[in-house]
Computed example of a mutant assay.
Amino acid sequence: MAYKSLLTIASSETGTRTAVDAGTKLALAMDAHLETLALGVDRSQLGYAYIGTGAVIMQVAMERAAEEAAQHEKYLRAALEAQGQDLRWSLDSAVCQLGALGELVGARARYSDLVVLPQPYGDDQGAEGEAVLESALFDGAAPVLVLPASGLPAALPKRVVLAWNQSREAMVAARRAMPLLKRAEQVVITVVDPSANGPERSDPGGNLCQMLVRHGVRAEVSVLARTLPRVSDVLARQCQDIGADLLVMGAYGHSRFREAILGGATRNMLESAEVPVFMAH
């Protein structure tokens, strides 16, 4: 079991080299093909305008997006060619409006085993970074590996924290991460403040651990109290305590709108993660 088709999308120069480096490590370790997409985004939001001006604005915006895509393509090509001859890769470019990102990215991600992207938040990141990530998760139904600025420490993580809350999203993430989990030296299934009335109240994480062990995963269970304000803080501390180089978690258990306004484990982790985060929905 391995990932054979990897995808990374460059919507800005920030984090592109990090994503290419990580994608290369995974592709070489799993004998996979790395697909890359240079994206130019038209961010214009036309409401109303004087007669004739709307078409002019749209034309200018699309020309700027095309220039942006060409610039990202040049940057991507240089990063890919620097990886050596052993890497199998392909490069494409596209231009679209911000509102059409879901359809474009979803069509590309749908046929990928794993999408590798930089952290979508930061001073140099625009709205398209988060839109690309969510489009891959929801429209493409693909797992996403989100990289911090430090990148991917090793092609195959040795110590993994697997966040578990009995949700559908957490189970999907565990199944999609199986190629990485089976190659890890230690997988710690981490349950934060489990419900005293839930179906797994007598053995939190036990059924998942049993399933993973049958697949050859070196899994164990760690049950933690919520001693910090946010679940994401507890997970981050767990990663630090065991020296984890990957966190696996389900993405967006609540609606994206609610997480954008009120916050949630997914958004909090994406904003502050110091280790690569593997997400699936």
Rank of each mutant, 00 (worst) to 15 (best):
V231F: 14
L162P: 08
L224N: 04
I189H: 01
V144K: 02
W89I: 00
Q210L: 15
I51W: 01
H72Q: 06
G99D: 15
F138V: 14
T18N: 10
L91K: 08
L224R: 14
M211C: 00
V115T: 09
S195Y: 12
L37A: 09
K182I: 07
A225M: 01
G102W: 02
V277Y: 01
I242K: 08
S255F: 11
V234A: 04
L270H: 03
L28N: 10
S272C: 11
E220Q: 04
P276A: 12
Q210G: 11
V231R: 14
T18L: 14
G54W: 00
R159Q: 11
E103N: 14
D42T: 11
A29C: 08
E200R: 07
K25M: 15
E128W: 12
R183H: 06
Q240G: 04
A70F: 03
Q125R: 15
I51P: 01
M62E: 14
L208P: 05
R218F: 03
V41G: 02
D233K: 06
A155V: 01
G243F: 10
L80N: 13
Q240V: 07
S272I: 07
A10Q: 02
D31S: 14
H281K: 12
A155R: 15
A142T: 08
Q85T: 13
N268E: 09
G106R: 02
H281E: 09
G15Q: 11
A19T: 09
D193K: 10
G40T: 02
A94D: 08
D21C: 15
G15C: 09
P199C: 08
E68K: 13
H33Y: 02
L114H: 05
A69D: 03
L246I: 08
P199F: 10
V144A: 00
M171P: 04
L224K: 11
A27K: 00
D124W: 02
M249F: 12
V105K: 03
Q59K: 05
S112F: 14
D233A: 15
A236V: 12
S255V: 05
A196V: 06
P120Y: 00
K182P: 01
R17K: 10
E220L: 00
E35Y: 02
S5A: 06
T14E: 14
P157H: 10
M178A: 11
D42G: 10
M279L: 15
V20D: 01
M1C: 03
Q45M: 07
L145H: 09
L156P: 04
R176V: 07
I9F: 02
A155L: 12
R256F: 12
F257T: 06
R230E: 13
A131S: 15
P179E: 05
R237P: 00
G216E: 06
V221L: 10
R258W: 11
L104H: 01
L147Y: 03
M171A: 12
L270M: 08
R175F: 11
F278S: 04
K25A: 15
L152A: 08
L87Q: 13
P199T: 12
L208A: 02
A69Q: 01
V192K: 00
S195V: 11
G243A: 03
L224Q: 14
R267A: 01
R168F: 04
G140M: 02
A10R: 03
G129V: 13
L162T: 13
D203H: 14
S112T: 15
A280V: 14
L224W: 07
W89M: 09
A38S: 06
E134A: 07
